[in-house]
């Protein structure tokens, strides 16, 4: 129940954040937190909800969000073998990788749909994504209830 409420509040705040700063994904840090502390089923359910939100509210044809969260999942899984997933350095590196991935994915989707690509604006948004990701992750990680973290540690 607590987890449901926490993730609901996180998603609502994320939607508001995305409305105030268009071009930035506020849910990505949530995936890192969820993968670290929750069962895979919970992460999958959250990702499905976030994919629906990103695709529904966005302007491109369906497909960007699936690739985006798949890349984030791969980076988090591979990164966990090499670095400590709880370190801000790892998350900062991940932020840089996500900034680059955001640019490449948007360019790919715009080309596939034969849409105009506002280069300067997208570059600014990628930079913002790279900078904001570790900040948002730190905030989410700090605010994630200790009780839920303990449950995961005990079950592991």
């Amino acid at each position: 129940m607590l987890a449901t409420l926490w993730w609901l509040a996180f998603t609502v705040l994320g939607i508001w954040g995305q409305s105030l700063l268009p071009g930035v994904d506020f849910f990505a840090p949530g995936m890192a937190v969820s993968l670290r502390w929750q069962r895979p089923g919970a992460t999958i359910a959250l990702t499905v909800a976030w994919v629906a939100i990103q695709e529904g509210a966005g302007g491109l044809a369906f497909g960007y969000a699936i690739l985006w969260y798949a890349i984030l999942f791969m980076l988090l899984t591979v990164g966990r073998w090499l670095l400590d997933p709880g370190s801000i350095q790892f998350q900062a590196l991940l932020g840089l990788a996500l900034g680059l991935a955001h640019f490449l994915l948007l360019y790919l989707m715009a080309v596939l749909e034969m849409r105009a690509f506002p280069l300067l604006r997208v570059l600014g948004e990628c930079l913002l994504q790279a900078v904001l990701y570790p900040v948002l992750w730190y905030a989410a990680e700090s605010l994630f209830p200790k009780r839920l973290k303990r449950v995961r540690e005990e079950s592991a």
């Binding site: 939607i15 995305q18 409305s19 268009p22 071009g23 930035v24 994904d25 939100i53 990103q54 695709e55 509210a57 966005g58 302007g59 491109l60 960007y64 969000a65 985006w68 955001h102 948007l106 989707m109 715009a110 849409r115 690509f117 506002p118 997208v122 948004e125 994504q129």
Partner: peptide, 15 residues
């Protein structure tokens, strides 16, 4: 209720 929303908002839109 909003202008562009989300990371895929490359079109000029409002909600």
């Amino acid at each position: 209720i909003a202008h562009r929303v989300g990371p895929t908002a490359i079109l000029e839109t409002i909600l």
